Amino acid sequence: MTETTRRQALLISATLLAGTAFGLTPALAQTFPARPITMVVPFAAGGSTDVVARIIAQKMSEGLGQQVIVENVAGAGGSTGAARVAKAEPDGYTILMGTVATHALNPLMLKRKPYDAVTDFTPISLLVVVPNVLVVHPSLPAKTVPELIALLKADPSKYNYASSGVGTPLHLSGELFKTMAKVNMQHIAYRGAGPALNDVVAGQVPIMFDNLPSSSEFIRAGTLRGIAVTTKERAPSFPDMPTIAEGGLSGYETYTWNALFAPPKTPKEIVDRLNAEALKAVKDPAVQERLKTFSATVVGSTPEALGEHVKAEIAKWTPVVKEAGVQID
């Protein structure tokens, strides 16, 4: 066989293989899923993302006819688990329960980028939004957002605020507040919301931005004062608590959200099937009741809407991260 003939044969073989592969995609999509699906949660078990994942995974399992197994892959603020899904086979059998951390904050703050939040994932659906909340120790003489802003402006070097750690959505909620209100507070970073809450309840730090579910029992008990929620709308679990935007910072909005993503180049037929089952899950009355217990607001979006949401979140947080000067190795 001459060199020219050999090249022609290789080209024909490659063309046939490519055609076969493309031809198999619809067939594979039609039989999907044929085995269990792994839903990667990029944080430790027990947190709000893990809870949402397990509720959704259980319901999706019923509709898909295959078990959706939750696997916790913690590390690097969620980036370890997210990177694993970004590099997985695009067959629908490995999906990610992503968050604002994995798809907006980490990509902006990490010096080494393990993935591109936009191009390295296929969006499936934005599932829920969980409010954050601005709380203070009851001894602080401020009961509203305007009163707190006035207090901070009157003595710019006096007050500190706590968060669950550097670079977390809660830390950046505080930085966004500072920027928009034109006030100063010293950030006190803790290793988790639990230790931070303990010090705020004890009066060691007067102010904190927290996930609403974590602070709820303290607000109801009166050991913390809920000033305002950080979402655009009031939280159903605390209908009398105003939003920060209502308090005078028009346009202020932060929250924790959970969304499903697949690896890049996952076939549309498979994405559509996963999206349909995710939407069925979040619309189920029993699922909604469970999600309401920790103030989660159900969204249930199209893949396209989630893709636009990620881009919007990156655009929103870019100036905040830059202003805060947060960089993580």
Rank of each mutant, 00 (worst) to 15 (best):
residue 49 T to S: 13
residue 59 K to V: 10
residue 107 P to Y: 01
residue 125 S to I: 04
residue 80 T to L: 12
residue 113 K to M: 03
residue 55 I to H: 00
residue 118 V to G: 07
residue 89 E to C: 08
residue 128 V to G: 02
residue 125 S to Q: 05
residue 11 L to I: 14
residue 16 L to M: 15
residue 91 D to C: 02
residue 30 Q to G: 14
residue 42 P to V: 10
residue 66 Q to H: 01
residue 120 D to C: 02
residue 106 N to E: 09
residue 121 F to M: 00
residue 104 A to R: 03
residue 126 L to V: 02
residue 76 A to E: 08
residue 135 V to H: 01
residue 14 A to C: 11
residue 108 L to H: 04
residue 52 V to M: 04
residue 87 K to P: 00
residue 16 L to K: 08
residue 104 A to D: 02
residue 35 R to V: 13
residue 120 D to R: 00
residue 54 R to A: 11
residue 110 L to S: 11
residue 89 E to V: 13
residue 144 T to M: 09
residue 128 V to R: 01
residue 129 V to D: 05
residue 123 P to K: 00
residue 76 A to M: 06
residue 42 P to N: 12
residue 74 A to S: 12
residue 46 G to Q: 06
residue 143 K to A: 14
residue 36 P to D: 11
residue 71 E to Y: 00
residue 31 T to F: 14
residue 7 R to Q: 15
residue 13 S to F: 13
residue 26 P to V: 07
residue 39 M to T: 07
residue 64 L to R: 08
residue 10 L to Q: 13
residue 133 V to D: 08
residue 80 T to A: 10
residue 12 I to V: 15
residue 59 K to Y: 09
residue 104 A to C: 05
residue 109 M to K: 00
residue 146 P to V: 04
residue 48 S to G: 13
residue 89 E to I: 12
residue 116 D to H: 06
residue 87 K to A: 12
residue 35 R to K: 15
residue 58 Q to W: 09
residue 50 D to S: 08
residue 143 K to D: 13
residue 103 H to D: 09
residue 126 L to C: 03
residue 141 P to I: 12
residue 21 A to M: 15
residue 59 K to I: 09
residue 125 S to C: 07
residue 124 I to F: 03
residue 42 P to S: 11
residue 48 S to I: 15
residue 52 V to I: 09
residue 27 A to L: 15
residue 112 R to V: 15
residue 50 D to L: 09
residue 24 L to D: 10
residue 14 A to P: 09
residue 98 G to Y: 02
residue 27 A to M: 15
residue 69 I to R: 12
residue 81 G to C: 07
residue 57 A to T: 04
residue 32 F to E: 00
residue 131 P to K: 07
residue 83 A to I: 04
residue 19 G to V: 15
residue 68 V to K: 05
residue 76 A to N: 13
residue 109 M to T: 10
residue 96 L to G: 02
residue 93 Y to I: 10
residue 46 G to H: 09
residue 146 P to W: 03
residue 66 Q to S: 04
residue 89 E to S: 11
residue 74 A to E: 08
residue 147 E to M: 01
residue 87 K to S: 06
residue 38 T to K: 14
residue 38 T to L: 12
residue 99 T to R: 01
residue 30 Q to S: 15
residue 114 P to M: 03
residue 141 P to R: 07
residue 112 R to D: 14
residue 29 A to T: 11
residue 16 L to I: 14
residue 59 K to Q: 13
residue 58 Q to N: 14
residue 113 K to F: 00
residue 44 A to H: 11
residue 103 H to N: 05
residue 81 G to V: 06
residue 63 G to N: 09
residue 80 T to V: 13
residue 81 G to A: 05
residue 62 E to P: 11
residue 141 P to Y: 11
residue 50 D to W: 06
residue 20 T to K: 06
residue 64 L to K: 07
residue 47 G to I: 04
residue 57 A to I: 03
residue 37 I to L: 07
residue 37 I to N: 01
residue 31 T to K: 14
residue 110 L to K: 03
residue 112 R to W: 08
residue 73 V to E: 07
residue 35 R to G: 09
residue 49 T to N: 12
residue 64 L to M: 12
residue 32 F to S: 06
residue 75 G to H: 04
residue 124 I to M: 09
residue 100 V to R: 03
